[in-house]
Design a protein around this nucleic acid. Structure first.
Lengths: 216, 216
DNA sequence: GCTTATGTACCGATCGTTCGGTTCAATACA
DNA sequence: TGTATTGAACCGAACGATCGGTACATAAGC
């Protein structure tokens, strides 16, 4: 069994925010100069770990190093706007790092491998929770944000199905395989964290690859 | 596509609480006399839909029909004790309705089918969220309760693996298949709700059955 | 000076929890 | 039998803390 705890060894090649740094005093001399993008990345981390109602404004303030007024300067709409921005960020990140490479013209296996590799990094082999899964629980989410969150998964499935279809797999079967792969990833994330075993996640990724690339 | 919204048609044969009934006036003449079991079932419903921090005491009071102090009469430990009781309830329900039948001596296929059927009812074909998934997000969960929640999934996998092993499948392969089946179920729950399509769930259940019963 | 950014202080609402008190059936005692 | 006594179940009011959000004055950067 590969325990979850020994933290990330591999360097991340993509720019998904990582796990919450606990202490991280944030030296005052270090020129805050908070760009909206930096803030959103930290919010992404917070919301994926704590969900919507679990992330209090005081937590957000602490995590970003910004006071309440600064937060409301950047996000006049309050928490709703923050989580909406985070959903947009996550969607664009997945779009750019995971879905766009799927649309290339290299062999399908290469593109699928790239997707699974980036996915694995995004979730740190199952150590990091999925924003979509965390936000799907939140009853207080604004409908607009809830729609955005659901759209992430739907787009992922659609892009994956399109790639398979482009490689000659019939539309219905492509959709079936794509859905199964996303199910595999999401289920593995939950089970890996529940059993504190990254092996569960990596194993599921191999299964997903095998099913996606199976002969017609 | 099979939309999520048209509510449950099939009658439930087992005693998993269903979805939240909205109005439910609770006639005052009907001698409440809430048994602890009745209360816990309603709490189960609430926590699986709203998560831990998403279920406020006012929600709990409304859902159970009990005043705040009555709730503290039954659960002196407050919300922590409530969610702990709900975890115990869910574990015992799964144990009795899903895991115990797995240990019978009928053909494996029959037992697996029974498990999948009961599972399907528990989640109402993907319309109802999983308590485990909902509570895994909650940062405020007492460690004891978090452990109980994780144990539910682990026990499920272990029981399923044991059944497969008892049917002649090598231990390692049995564990692999059992884990994959739970991953499938949990992933399907998320994806089905995100795409509002129960077909995703039922399709995943068929996949799980096929993989579990595949020839060695 | 004007805009952007931030800190301090504060708001009403709601959080989980506790308190004082009522109802009512069962029990003990006369 | 009639009458205290008990204790479980229940309630709404109110607690201190924290929630999300606002107002305003002060800087910093152009």
């Amino acid at each position: 069994m590969v325990p979850l705890s020994p933290k990330r060894v591999s360097e991340k090649r993509f720019d998904f925010p990582g796990q919450l740094r606990k202490g991280a005093p944030m030296s005052a001399a270090a020129r805050p100069s908070h760009s909206r993008d930096e803030i959103v990345r930290k919010l992404f981390d917070l919301f994926r770990h704590r969900g919507f109602e679990g992330a209090a404004l005081s937590d957000i303030s602490e995590a970003t190093g910004l006071g309440r007024s600064s937060l409301y300067h950047h996000f006049p709409g309050g928490k709703d706007e923050m989580v909406s921005a985070v959903a947009d960020f996550a969607h664009s990140q997945i779009e750019a790092n995971i879905l766009a490479p799927l649309a290339g013209d290299t062999p399908l296996a290469e593109r699928v491998d790239a997707m699974l590799q980036t996915t694995s990094e995004m979730y740190d082999c199952g150590r990091e929770p999925c924003l979509v899964a965390s936000l799907m629980v939140s009853p207080g989410l604004a409908p607009e944000s809830a729609g955005k969150v659901q759209a992430i998964l739907k787009d992922w499935i659609a892009a994956l199905a399109a790639a398979l279809e482009g490689a000659g797999i019939p539309a219905a079967e492509a959709k079936r395989r794509a859905t199964a792969a996303i199910i595999d990833i999401q289920g593995a994330l939950l089970v890996a964290r529940a059993s504190a075993d990254t092996g569960v996640f990596t194993g599921a990724m191999e299964t997903a690859r095998r099913n996606l690339l199976a002969p017609a």
